[in-house]
């Protein structure tokens, strides 16, 4: 598995995800500056990390979606390469047309940072094979705009095609309104592209890869990817 992390000027969790990738794959990922037009040769996985790509004072990810590096990311995805967008990365994937829908401000209009359970909706993708279907894993969340909204028709397609990756849930795995931290439609925390090679999610599995710092429930995602290629 060879991974690359795209770094925008306002990215701030690129180091966190690089650390998780190194732990899972045994080697540090290539860091790719947003102004680059090409990805390093032989890259299997491209990660768009968390942060505030260009300050994101208006629409999160809208400017980043038009960065040079994103053309290369789109081409990579079109070839069937793996793409993982976390938090701001998810916002950028939606703004860049790689995933449907949009991330709106959280239901109560406040930034929310805490530990959160999410349910693994399927465990047969390149991102989730190390988990069990229905497993309620613990991850961190830290976002002000993570309220996933999508039109009814697309929603029906996402559900029908099994493209919902994770839903916010309680410790028992139940998807409830009380367990939903931001008001996302159907408790959605992450979704896949049609071919299941692109995943966008709001939570931060990369912050749960270390028993000393929160726990290790996030490792499964990176371990799955490490084995996928």
């Amino acid at each position: 598995m060879r991974a690359a992390v795209v770094v925008f000027p306002g990215s701030n969790r690129e180091g966190d995800v690089a650390r998780a990738l190194k732990l899972a794959t045994g080697r540090p990922p290539d860091m790719v500056w947003h102004a680059e037009r090409d990805l390093p040769a032989g890259v299997d996985l491209v990660v768009l990390p968390g942060g505030f790509s260009y300050g994101d004072y208006l629409r999160c990810g809208a400017i980043a979606a038009r960065a040079h590096a994103m053309d290369a990311v789109r081409a990579h995805a079109a070839r069937g390469g793996y793409v993982l967008g976390i938090c701001n990365g998810f916002q950028i994937l939606c703004e860049g047309g790689l995933l449907p829908g949009v991330l709106m401000r959280n239901r109560d209009l406040r930034f929310v940072s805490k530990m959160q359970r999410i349910r693994v909706e399927r465990a047969d993708t390149a991102f989730t094979r190390a988990y069990a279907k229905g497993q309620a894993i613990e991850v961190a969340i830290a976002h002000g705009e993570g309220n996933y909204e999508v039109d009814d028709e697309t929603m029906a397609r996402l559900e029908g095609e099994g493209r919902v990756a994770f839903r916010y849930c309680d410790a028992a795995g139940a998807v409830t309104e009380a367990a939903n931290p931001n008001g996302s439609t159907a408790g959605i925390a992450g979704i896949y592209s049609e071919r299941l090679n692109v995943l966008g999610l709001m939570p931060h599995p990369e912050n749960l890869v270390d028993p000393l710092v929160g726990g290790t429930d996030g490792r499964g995602l990176f371990d799955s990817l490490a084995r996928a290629a």
Binding site: G15, D16, F111, S113, K114, A142, H204, V213, G214
Partner: peptide, 28 residues
């Protein structure tokens, strides 16, 4: 404190709520 990102950088061994916060330096 849930409006503050206490976890970024991946080194927060103890965050808000205890006597002191504990922040690991790099890989410790």
């Amino acid at each position: 404190y849930e409006q503050y990102d206490a976890l970024i950088l991946g080194n927060t061994v103890q965050g808000p709520g205890g006597d002191s916060a504990v922040v690991r330096l790099g890989d410790g």
